[in-house]
Design a protein around this nucleic acid. Structure first.
Length: 153
DNA sequence: GCCAACGTTGGC
DNA sequence: GCCAACGTTGGC
């Protein structure tokens, strides 16, 4: 079992939206970055745990814990010309973009804010905290996860 | 709203 | 293959 961090702008889709969704579940679609896609396609497995991060929020931070319930499958929004994430270059017979399905486990309220994360020496290597980091799907190490679990007790 | 950092595109 | 221009991300 591995750990991950997924970013979402709460204005677009918040952790609370996930908890309010049918079966507390959503397809993590709309990812249009190859590095993030490769994690979704190749590495993220059923049962993996996810930190749900709110970007472009005040303050930005980790707002909940989720879990992967379905592994990689085609991202249908890429085939829908009316969808904001439509990609005419993605062939339905050989999809470029994939999604996984996650379910909400529990909220972190108030969220664990960026300043709190930056204050912890053991987290200084986190991809999230790297200057200029934009990757929307990130691996989280066992140690980082353990430290964060301790912070939200 | 600002702007630095980043990924993608396309001309050459 | 190079790289400038562009659009996007995301903290502040």
């Amino acid at each position: 079992m591995r750990y991950w961090l997924f970013k979402s702008e709460p204005e677009c889709f918040s952790f609370q939206d996930l908890m309010a969704a049918p079966k507390r579940t959503t397809g993590w679609d709309g990812v249009r970055n190859y590095q993030a896609r490769n994690f979704l396609r190749d590495d993220i497995k059923r049962g993996d745990k996810v930190l749900f991060y709110h970007s472009n929020a005040a303050p930005p931070g980790i707002a909940g814990i989720a879990e992967v319930v379905e592994e990689s499958h085609p991202d249908s929004t890429a085939f829908d010309s009316a969808d904001h994430h439509f990609d005419p270059k993605s062939d339905p017979k050989n999809p470029t973009w994939v999604q996984v399905t996650i379910t909400g486990v529990r909220a972190i309220d108030p969220p664990l804010g960026l300043p709190s994360l930056r204050a912890v020496a053991e987290l200084s290597g986190m991809e999230l905290l790297r200057k200029g980091s934009r990757l929307s799907i990130q691996p989280v190490t066992d140690l980082e996860w353990a430290v964060i679990e301790r912070l939200i007790l």
